Structure formats: structure tokens, C-alpha cells
Simulated scan of single mutants.
Amino acid sequence: MTKAMEAEPARAPATGRRGAAVRVEGIDIRFGSFHAVRDVSLDIAAGEFLCLLGPSGCGKSTLLSALAGFVAPHDGGLTVDGAPVTGPGPDLGMVFQSSEALFDWMTVRQNVAFGPRMRGSSRAEQTALADEYLGLVGLRHCADRFPSQLSGGMRQRVQIARVLANRPSVVLMDEPFGALDAQTRQVMQEEMDRIRRVSGCTVVFVTHDIDEAILLADRIAVMTAGPAASIKSVYPVGLPRPRDVTEPSAAELRHRLRQDIGEEVRKALRDQGLALEEDL
């Protein structure tokens, strides 16, 4: 049974830019006989930051791929501001875990300008957009370098800038900081909070890190163990920003999230025929 608590609608930023509202309605995703995601429904407010949590293999990335238009649902509907998602498009920006998505033979500026270039923007507009978003992620001084000359965290910031240069209304992020060291990851989390506020995008963010979800999200949706994964619970995060995960209210939320995910991990292990100590 889903334990859902509604979050307050997110406000648009002072820049006047606005993310799009996303509706996931009764989504089923199958790959042949394998039932990956079952009857998932979520309403994501314009400008909201939603984190998806859950056990490994529960379908978080699969659901994100469906939102991006890369995977067609077997049943149900996906809409962005009321328009059906029928495939990838510039309004839906995807940031992957690996920075290998960058073009190594292009400079940082050329990478970020690639989307505007494909849309037919003038050279001057391409450069202006690239510099604007490189400034947003703090990398304008690296515009003429190549990705191989940057650290892992810097490459991820270039990838975020490249997505934002398309001016998407929804940004989808699949564990974008998962491969980074702990210190760089902390910096990127702080930067992501700032970038989201300035850009005004709606963000759907997949992570395995409970503290990361608490730091970033307006709401956290926990998925059940797969196969046929669904939404187990949805929690609003009412903590003031910037956040401190050592606060008592954060600790209470962390406990509830760990409890929910732990239940699903134990269920998955039992389904695989493994006997747990508590069952003996």
C-alpha cells in the first residue's frame, strides 16, 4: 500500500523560468516476459525536485528512461505539461552517471553549444548560451579545454551545462554523482541545489544515497524491489535549505527511508530463497 504525503508546490525562480509539470499515470514497463515496472503513478509539480530511491534493480533507471522517451511503456501514460511523451526531445534533458557522454574531440564550449547548434542557432547565440551555462556551473574559465583535461566532477558539471543549454523544462539525472569521490560528490550536491534554483527546471533524480536525497529533494519516492516494481512510499522533505543531515528531523526521515528500503531488500532476498537471521 502506498504511503503518500503531498508536498507543497515548488515556486518558480526569480528569473521567471519555469519547469514543467510531469504526470506518470499507471505506467507498466515490460521487456518481453520480464515485468520491470508495475502501475507507477506520480504527479511532479513544475519546478519540483523529486528523488527516486529504492533497492538495486528496482527499475529506477528504467522509469527515468521512460520519462526521457527512450523506453516506451507497455501501458499507462506519461505527460509533460499535458503533452504526451512519445520520444526524446529538447524539453527533456538527460544527465547520465558517466561523463563519457561528452564528445572528447570537442572543447568544453563546443560540447555545451552542441544542442543549440543542432537546433540551428547562430554561432553567436551558440557561444552566448555555452558561456551562460558554463558560468552557471562555474566552468567558464575551462571553455577552451577538452574533457580529458578536466577532473571527474568538472566533466559532470560540463554535462549538466550541456543539458541546460537546451533550456529543457525537465532534467532527468541518473545517479550523476555516483562515480565521484566523497568530497567532490559533496561539492556537486551543493552546486546542484544552487543550479536547480537558478535554472527553475523540474528535476527527477535517481540515487542510492539516502543522505543525498534528503539534501536535494522536495519529495522522495521510494520504489519497491523488482521485478514488477511500484511506488512504496512518498515523503516530502520539509527541511530548510541549505540542509544539515545531522538535524533531528533529517535523522527521523533517514530512519523511515532506511526502514522502507530495508523491508524491500529483505523481501527480495527471501524471494530468492535466502534465509535471513530474523526468520530462523
Rank of each mutant, 00 (worst) to 15 (best):
F103T: 11
E278K: 09
L216W: 01
A182W: 00
P13F: 03
G26A: 15
G32E: 03
F103I: 05
L63T: 08
E132G: 04
I214T: 01
G262F: 03
G47F: 04
D81K: 00
A225W: 00
A182E: 14
C142Q: 13
D279W: 01
A217T: 12
G19L: 11
R241T: 04
S98T: 09
Y133C: 02
I29D: 08
S121H: 15
P55W: 14
D174R: 15
A213Q: 12
E263H: 10
T62V: 13
P9H: 12
Q110N: 08
V24H: 06
R270V: 05
A7S: 13
L276G: 04
L216M: 01
R254S: 02
A221H: 09
Q159W: 10
V108E: 12
E247M: 13
G178Q: 12
M188K: 10
A46L: 10
K267P: 05
H141N: 12
E191P: 08
Q97S: 03
R194Y: 08
M118P: 03
F70Q: 10
F34W: 06
K267I: 09
D144A: 14
Q259N: 05
T207K: 07
E247Y: 08
R157I: 00
A68Y: 02
P227I: 11
D260K: 05
D279Y: 13
L269G: 00
F177Y: 15
E252T: 15
Q189W: 04
V158H: 09
R119K: 14
S122I: 10
A165W: 09
A113M: 08
L276W: 10
W105I: 06
F70V: 11
T107Q: 06
E252S: 02
A46G: 14
E247A: 14
E212L: 06
V265S: 11
G26H: 15
L274T: 11
H74W: 03
R17G: 06
D28N: 13
C142P: 05
Y235W: 09
I210A: 08
G32V: 02
V137Q: 09
D144N: 13
R185F: 09
V204F: 12
D244G: 02
A113K: 00
V108F: 03
V222M: 04
V245N: 14
P227T: 14
G138E: 04
A165R: 10
D91T: 06
A250K: 01
Q126P: 03
D144L: 04
A229W: 03
V24L: 15
V265R: 10
S233F: 09
D91M: 08
P13N: 07
V40S: 00
L280S: 13
G262C: 04
K267E: 15
F49C: 13
R23H: 04
V204P: 07
R38P: 00
A20K: 11
D193W: 03
W105H: 13
T86I: 07
Q272F: 12
M192K: 05
F146D: 07
